[in-house]
Amino acid sequence: MASAPENEKNASAPEKKTLTLKSMINNEEFVVDEHVALQSVTIKNMVDSDCAGDVIPVPTISGEILALVIEYCKNHANPSASEDDLKKADAGIVAKDIYTLIDLVLAANFLDIKGLLEVTSQKIADSIKDLPHQDVREIFGVENDYTPEEEAAVRAEHDWAFEGFP
């Protein structure tokens, strides 16, 4: 068993425990109250198993995205926020372009924050609605991997979905 790093400062007065999250993409650091950060199951597991040092490195998530994630966690850690407030706040967080949303959903998935994953997935689904399939490819970062024959066949099977579609 690897021993957990024991280099916490010994505070004399009971102070709010904080964690520092560091984006490994651009080295941006965020100091967050522990109870806010613990909404991430991934971080909670690290803290619970004593694997979290002073600074928790967050790979593959940029500072810009991490800031959004923390904003979400702060909102949802506020016990006096009403359901309506939270809905509005969530809508504000996901009012972003599609590429930010994709990064955000990946971050929510990596950090295991169910609510953020759901609200972001819904927003992406809403953005795909009524888009031509060529744009859908771009959003999901997929290539057209059909052979022309296969594409024609699958298109024929779903032709009804293109009726009246520009």
Binding site: S121, F140, V142, Y146, F165
Partner: peptide
């Protein structure tokens, strides 16, 4: 942009409110 893993794509596609949107996604790839 990182590619989305299939479980995340499923999470998103499951939230489409209209099967016509889903059908067009099926033609995409």
């Amino acid at each position: 942009m990182d590619d989305l893993p299939p479980p995340l794509i499923l999470e998103i596609l499951s939230r489409l409110s209209d099967s016509a949107d889903l059908a067009r996604c099926r033609v995409a790839s």
